[in-house]
Amino acid sequence: MRAVVAFDAFKGSLTAAEACAAAAEGIRAAVPQAEVALVPMADGGEGSLDALLARGGDEVVTETVDAIGRPVRARWALEHGHAVIELAQAAGLPQVEDAPLQPLAASTAGLGAVVLDALDRGATELTLLLGGSATTDGGAGILTALGARLTDAAGRPVQAGGGGLAALEHLDAAGLDPRALAATWRFVTDVDAPLTGPRGAAAVFGPQKGADDAEVAALDAALARLARVGAESLGVDAAAVVEVPGAGAAGGVASVLRVLTGGRIVAGGDWFAELAGLDAAVAGADLVLTGEGRFDAQSAGGKVVSVVHAAAQRHGVPLCVLAGAVDGRAARAMGVPAFSIAAGPADLAELQRDAARLLAAAAASVTRLSTAGGRSARG
């Protein structure tokens, strides 16, 4: 038997590599001689860096600040001049959940410091993994850290955070670090949200970052202002800043900065699948297992499960989803068998504590069913 395990992280429980290892353990418990390919996956959100480092590359640590200005050590990867930087390491929501959330003041300046460190270390290719942010500043903190000037009508620097953009009148990129302009930029996103509007960065994700209705409206207007001022400064149409799918990811990081650097937005799940060699691993397999902490309607929109499902369909390989929680309607809509790893009623803390054991047991059960089905079909 040849199987592939291609899991995303189970947030709060298992990294993608740990989830793959647990599932592989379960498969081998059911079929000791099984050949199992482990393909840790991610989509650009938290845990993406760990999935990448599990495949190789040098880990680097930069002393910087989090979204509310507190000292933090940000991990990132560097290999052959290619820096892969996870936003959540320097502007992540989990980092600041121990303090009152500051949706108007939270800044990506700390992420900018990491980018500068990468450039100092010789990086010429920059991949930003955008997900899990605490910020809605349109990437203003990064722009400022790289040398751009964002000023008000009196020529004074605007305050940090999305709220400060309400006073923005000028964006001067003349002082931007030339190394940043010369670098190749890639923005890996796990959502396709535009910058503003009802599906934009503030409206959809602002409440998760502590914004009330009034603050959501203020942030949306501030991002629109950034787009207008930035577009005028760069000589492009505002639509190029606002409407590109993914421009609203991580509070708008991939908006003005993308246009300024000539970077491109890529879907996280597809990018990781190519990087990890998912298609080659799935080809010729007898079974594919995938999953994440929660399998629901969002899983179909470019998340890891949908990407692995597509690969399994291309190669005609049976697939099963194992997750901490499963929305049955989402499973039926996608047309895949999906099971919760919970052995029975359990609270979140129990599931997180026992996730590896439960995932291994679930993988063993699915593998036994799969092989029994195969024997029955042959008989």
Rank of each mutant, 00 (worst) to 15 (best):
T108S: 12
T108Y: 10
T108K: 07
G110M: 09
L111W: 06
V114C: 03
V115E: 00
V115T: 00
V115S: 00
A118R: 00
A118Y: 00
L119D: 14
R121E: 02
A123S: 07
L126V: 12
T127Q: 03
L128P: 02
L128Q: 03
L128E: 02
L130Q: 11
G131E: 08
A134S: 11
T135R: 08
T136K: 04
D137G: 05
G138C: 12
G139I: 06
G139M: 03
G139R: 03
A140S: 15
G141H: 09
I142V: 09
A145Q: 02
A145D: 00
A145L: 03
L146E: 02
L146R: 04
L146A: 04
G147Y: 11
G147W: 10
G147M: 13
R149N: 15
R149D: 14
A153K: 15
A154L: 10
A154K: 12
R156A: 14
P157S: 14
P157T: 15
V158P: 05
Q159H: 13
A160F: 05
G162C: 05
G162H: 06
G163L: 03
G164L: 08
L165A: 01
A166W: 05
A167R: 11
A167L: 14
A167C: 14
L168A: 07
L168F: 06
H170P: 06
L171T: 01
L171M: 12
L171A: 13
D172Q: 10
D172Y: 08
A173T: 10
G175N: 15
L176M: 14
A180M: 04
A180Y: 01
A180C: 11
A180N: 05
L181A: 13
F187N: 03
D190N: 11
V191L: 08
D192P: 14
A193D: 07
T196R: 00
G197H: 05
P198W: 03
P198S: 05
R199N: 08
A201H: 09
A202N: 09
A202S: 07
A203E: 11
V204S: 13
V204H: 10
F205M: 10
Q208I: 09
Q208F: 08
K209T: 10
K209A: 12
G210V: 09
D213Y: 09
V216R: 14
A217I: 14
L219T: 08
L219W: 08
